[in-house]
Write a protein that binds this DNA or RNA. Structure first.
Length: 109
DNA sequence: AGTGTGACACTGG
DNA sequence: TCCAGTGCCACAC
Protein backbone atom coordinates (compact mmCIF):
# COMPACT_ATOMS: atom_id res chain seq x y z
CA UNK A 1 0.00 0.00 0.00
CA UNK A 2 1.38 3.36 -0.92
CA UNK A 3 0.77 6.32 1.30
CA UNK A 4 1.46 8.44 -1.70
CA UNK A 5 -2.04 7.67 -2.79
CA UNK A 6 -3.14 10.16 -0.21
CA UNK A 7 -3.52 12.74 -2.91
CA UNK A 8 -5.58 10.50 -5.11
CA UNK A 9 -7.46 9.15 -2.18
CA UNK A 10 -8.48 12.63 -1.18
CA UNK A 11 -9.70 13.30 -4.67
CA UNK A 12 -11.86 10.22 -4.52
CA UNK A 13 -13.13 11.17 -1.10
CA UNK A 14 -14.19 14.64 -2.16
CA UNK A 15 -15.67 13.36 -5.39
CA UNK A 16 -17.78 10.90 -3.47
CA UNK A 17 -18.93 13.69 -1.18
CA UNK A 18 -20.38 15.64 -4.07
CA UNK A 19 -24.09 15.98 -3.30
CA UNK A 20 -26.70 14.71 -5.67
CA UNK A 21 -27.45 17.08 -8.49
CA UNK A 22 -24.25 19.02 -7.88
CA UNK A 23 -20.97 19.29 -9.75
CA UNK A 24 -17.53 20.64 -8.99
CA UNK A 25 -14.42 21.58 -10.87
CA UNK A 26 -11.00 19.97 -10.82
CA UNK A 27 -9.57 23.23 -9.55
CA UNK A 28 -12.00 23.36 -6.64
CA UNK A 29 -10.95 19.90 -5.59
CA UNK A 30 -7.31 20.79 -6.11
CA UNK A 31 -7.68 23.81 -3.87
CA UNK A 32 -9.34 21.73 -1.22
CA UNK A 33 -6.45 19.30 -1.40
CA UNK A 34 -4.01 22.17 -1.21
CA UNK A 35 -2.83 21.75 -4.78
CA UNK A 36 -4.76 24.37 -6.66
CA UNK A 37 -2.12 24.48 -9.34
CA UNK A 38 -2.33 20.76 -9.79
CA UNK A 39 -5.84 20.74 -11.11
CA UNK A 40 -4.55 18.53 -13.88
CA UNK A 41 -3.51 15.94 -11.35
CA UNK A 42 -7.10 15.75 -10.21
CA UNK A 43 -8.08 14.70 -13.68
CA UNK A 44 -5.36 12.10 -13.62
CA UNK A 45 -6.69 10.76 -10.39
CA UNK A 46 -10.06 10.49 -12.03
CA UNK A 47 -8.46 8.39 -14.71
CA UNK A 48 -7.49 5.87 -12.09
CA UNK A 49 -10.83 6.29 -10.43
CA UNK A 50 -12.18 4.36 -13.36
CA UNK A 51 -11.00 1.37 -11.44
CA UNK A 52 -13.33 2.38 -8.65
CA UNK A 53 -17.07 2.54 -9.01
CA UNK A 54 -17.54 4.75 -5.98
CA UNK A 55 -16.21 7.82 -7.69
CA UNK A 56 -18.88 9.77 -9.58
CA UNK A 57 -16.43 11.35 -11.96
CA UNK A 58 -19.35 12.49 -14.04
CA UNK A 59 -19.96 15.11 -11.37
CA UNK A 60 -16.50 16.54 -11.88
CA UNK A 61 -16.03 18.96 -14.72
CA UNK A 62 -13.65 21.73 -15.62
CA UNK A 63 -14.10 25.32 -14.51
CA UNK A 64 -16.20 26.09 -17.55
CA UNK A 65 -18.63 23.34 -16.72
CA UNK A 66 -17.58 21.47 -19.81
CA UNK A 67 -17.68 17.69 -19.71
CA UNK A 68 -14.10 17.35 -20.78
CA UNK A 69 -13.84 13.87 -19.34
CA UNK A 70 -16.88 12.57 -21.08
CA UNK A 71 -14.69 11.23 -23.80
CA UNK A 72 -12.88 9.22 -21.20
CA UNK A 73 -15.92 7.75 -19.59
CA UNK A 74 -17.57 5.15 -21.66
CA UNK A 75 -16.81 6.65 -25.00
CA UNK A 76 -20.41 7.76 -25.22
CA UNK A 77 -22.70 10.34 -23.72
CA UNK A 78 -22.98 8.34 -20.53
CA UNK A 79 -21.51 11.16 -18.51
CA UNK A 80 -24.05 13.63 -19.78
CA UNK A 81 -26.87 11.18 -19.25
CA UNK A 82 -25.87 10.72 -15.64
CA UNK A 83 -25.78 14.45 -15.03
CA UNK A 84 -29.14 14.99 -16.66
CA UNK A 85 -30.45 12.14 -14.59
CA UNK A 86 -29.56 14.16 -11.52
CA UNK A 87 -31.47 17.17 -12.74
CA UNK A 88 -28.49 18.92 -14.24
CA UNK A 89 -29.07 20.44 -17.63
CA UNK A 90 -26.30 19.55 -20.02
CA UNK A 91 -26.22 20.77 -23.59
CA UNK A 92 -23.43 19.80 -25.93
CA UNK A 93 -21.23 18.64 -23.07
CA UNK A 94 -21.77 22.03 -21.48
CA UNK A 95 -23.45 22.23 -18.08
CA UNK A 96 -26.17 24.87 -17.95
CA UNK A 97 -26.71 26.94 -14.81
CA UNK A 98 -23.33 25.88 -13.63
CA UNK A 99 -23.47 28.46 -10.86
CA UNK A 100 -26.54 26.76 -9.43
CA UNK A 101 -25.26 23.23 -9.49
CA UNK A 102 -21.69 24.12 -8.66
CA UNK A 103 -20.49 22.67 -5.37
CA UNK A 104 -17.40 24.01 -3.61
CA UNK A 105 -15.73 21.55 -1.25
CA UNK A 106 -13.80 24.38 0.37
CA UNK A 107 -17.01 26.16 1.23
CA UNK A 108 -19.57 23.50 1.86
CA UNK A 109 -17.27 20.80 3.07
C1' DA B 1 17.04 10.44 -12.37
C1' DG B 2 15.06 12.46 -16.35
C1' DT B 3 11.47 13.03 -19.83
C1' DG B 4 6.74 13.06 -21.32
C1' DT B 5 2.11 13.59 -20.37
C1' DG B 6 -2.52 15.21 -18.72
C1' DA B 7 -10.48 14.55 -17.69
C1' DC B 8 -6.96 22.13 -15.84
C1' DA B 9 -6.57 27.11 -14.65
C1' DC B 10 -5.15 31.64 -15.64
C1' DT B 11 -3.75 35.64 -18.56
C1' DG B 12 -3.50 38.22 -22.64
C1' DG B 13 -5.18 39.51 -27.28
C1' DT C 1 -17.03 35.51 -25.20
C1' DC C 2 -13.72 32.80 -27.45
C1' DC C 3 -8.84 31.32 -28.95
C1' DA C 4 -4.11 30.66 -28.09
C1' DG C 5 -0.22 30.44 -25.21
C1' DT C 6 1.86 29.65 -20.60
C1' DG C 7 2.45 27.66 -15.94
C1' DC C 8 1.88 24.23 -12.81
C1' DC C 9 2.20 19.76 -10.19
C1' DA C 10 2.21 14.88 -9.66
C1' DC C 11 2.35 10.37 -11.86
C1' DA C 12 3.97 6.81 -15.44
C1' DC C 13 7.64 4.99 -18.18
Amino acid sequence: MKETDNFFDKVYQVTRLIPFGRVTSYGAIGIYLGAAKSARMVGWAMNKSHNLDDVPAHRVVNRKGLLTGKHHFDGTNLMQQLLENEGIVVIDNQIQDLEKVFWSPTEEL
